[in-house]
């Protein structure tokens, strides 16, 4: 069973580094729809894929968040990528595999994956 002592060790290691994270205004936001419609269509593994991918690639300027229903239930799972100063990009019918591709192409290389955006 994991102990709180382990968490204390993480805290001691992290203290002092926490201020280095990006401010919200300059960060790219990845917003996953997590209402009933999104969850039923498979949003939870999609959210997990984005969180893990962003952590693995150390994209400290990307924030993964969630939202409710945006009214396009038949296109769920829906993921919006919002970069400051750019138009919002809406990806539809997202899967964990598509999420990995979006991370690699869009979040890392800045290329919108046009075959997955809403038509």
């Amino acid at each position: 069973m994991k102990s709180l002592a382990e968490l204390k060790a993480i805290r001691d290691k992290m203290q002092g580094t926490i201020g280095l994270r990006a401010e919200d205004e300059t960060a790219t936001r990845v917003v996953v729809g997590m209402a009933t419609c999104g969850i039923a269509a498979g949003a939870r593994p999609v959210l997990t894929a984005f969180v893990n991918g962003v952590q693995e690639k150390k994209l400290s300027n990307v924030m993964v968040t969630q939202t409710g229903c945006i009214g396009l239930c038949k296109y769920e799972p829906i993921v919006e990528v919002i970069e400051p100063g750019k138009d919002k990009v809406t990806y539809v019918h997202v899967t964990p595999e598509k999420a990995d591709e979006i991370i690699e192409k869009h979040l890392v290389n800045g290329q919108v994956v046009s075959e997955y955006i809403i038509k």
């Binding site: 069973m1 994991k2 709180l4 382990e6 968490l7 204390k8 993480i10 290691k13 992290m14 952590q55």
Partner: peptide, 28 residues
């Protein structure tokens, strides 16, 4: 609340912390 007390302001979505919580949940 126990985690929060230990973490002294480090948020739960910090990669290291969320990995700990994941392993805590799965292991238990």
């Amino acid at each position: 609340r126990e985690f929060r007390e230990v973490l002294e302001g480090i948020p739960f979505n910090t990669p290291e912390v969320s990995r700990y919580i994941k392993e805590y949940l799965e292991g238990n």
